[in-house]
């Protein structure tokens, strides 16, 4: 076992782990930054309306706005019970 592990591929360097983590994070944060300021508020209000009729939580709603602010996509994951 000891000899085998010796031949195993080298562990990923910590610098490349850092780079990968940064790439994901920075992409996410840039996306957030480019969103209009009203988006969080709008998301809250849409959710409040939906919550009046269906039992949903904040995590079940995803609001995406494409880069030129031309398409607004709203995804709501409904609880199992409502679907049937």
């Amino acid at each position: 076992m000891g000899i085998l592990s010796y031949f195993r591929t080298k562990k990923q360097s910590s610098a490349s782990v850092a780079k990968e983590r940064l790439q994901v994070l920075v992409a996410y944060e840039r996306n957030q930054r480019n969103q209009p300021d009203y988006l969080p508020q709008m998301q809250q209000e849409i959710l409040a309306v939906i919550a009046k009729y269906v039992d949903v939580s904040m995590d079940d709603v995803q609001v995406n706005l494409d880069e030129n602010c031309s398409i607004l996509e709203l995804n709501v994951t409904l609880p199992e019970a409502v679907k049937s």
């Binding site: 360097s13 910590s14 610098a15 490349s16 850092a18 780079k19 940064l22 790439q23 920075v26």
Partner: peptide, 14 residues
């Protein structure tokens, strides 16, 4: 070189 620090290229990529 030892893979312990982000390289110039890494930082530029990001």
């Amino acid at each position: 070189q030892a893979g312990e620090m982000l390289s110039v290229e890494d930082v530029q990529d990001i």
